[in-house]
């Protein structure tokens, strides 16, 4: 059985994959390993990808769409940065990982955290998430961990299109 390596941008993505998706992704793999690639030199990311391929293991790269207008444009940008990257293995988060966090909350869970229930989270950015943090949370990390405790993948599939695509591609 081979391993799955997931390239995550930073601590917020790592926390999300660790808390919500790692156990789901584990099916069919000996283990799931997370690699934080934000700030890592492009050549080093390429080295990881080559090494993973040489070991016969699998990988995914998760990236926010950021300022790019389309998924294709973002994938092309990543391909320019990482020459070894197979763009079929790229998962684009729209717009940012904070949207995937909020997507997994049903109305009851949102209210229990002091958050306004959202019908969809495709437009959530880091800044918008930060503005939504209830006053009684002195830490956004604390809030994110509370969201993970209440997370429903089923609800997330309904509220975020990029999460739905990820689910269809990697978990269904």
């Amino acid at each position: 059985m081979n391993r799955l390596f997931v390239f995550c941008e930073g601590p917020d993505d790592i926390r999300f994959f660790e808390g919500v998706l790692k156990s789901e992704l584990r099916e069919g793999y000996a283990s799931v390993e997370l690699i934080a690639y934000a700030g890592m030199k492009h050549i080093r990311v390429d080295g990881f990808i080559r090494g993973i391929g040489a070991m016969g293991d699998d990988y995914l790269m998760v990236a926010d769409i950021d300022s790019d207008r389309t998924v294709k444009a973002k994938k092309n940008r990543l391909k320019r940065w990482y020459r070894e990257l197979d763009t079929d293995k790229v998962i684009i988060v729209i717009k940012e990982i904070e949207g995937w966090y909020l997507a997994g909350l049903n109305d009851h869970a949102s209210r229990s955290l002091g958050l306004r229930p959202l019908p969809g989270t495709d437009r959530i950015t880091k800044e918008r998430f930060n503005r939504m943090i209830p006053d009684h949370y002195v830490s956004r990390i604390d809030l994110m961990i509370e969201i993970i405790k209440r997370y429903s993948i089923k609800v997330a599939r309904e509220k975020n299109r990029s999460f739905r695509f990820f689910y269809w591609k990697c978990l269904e």
């Binding site: 790592i14 934080a36 956004r140």
Partner: peptide, 14 residues
């Protein structure tokens, strides 16, 4: 370390 640095930024909100 990345998580510790992220905590500095988080705590600096207050």
């Amino acid at each position: 370390i990345a998580r510790v640095v992220s905590m500095f930024g988080d705590a600096a909100r207050n």
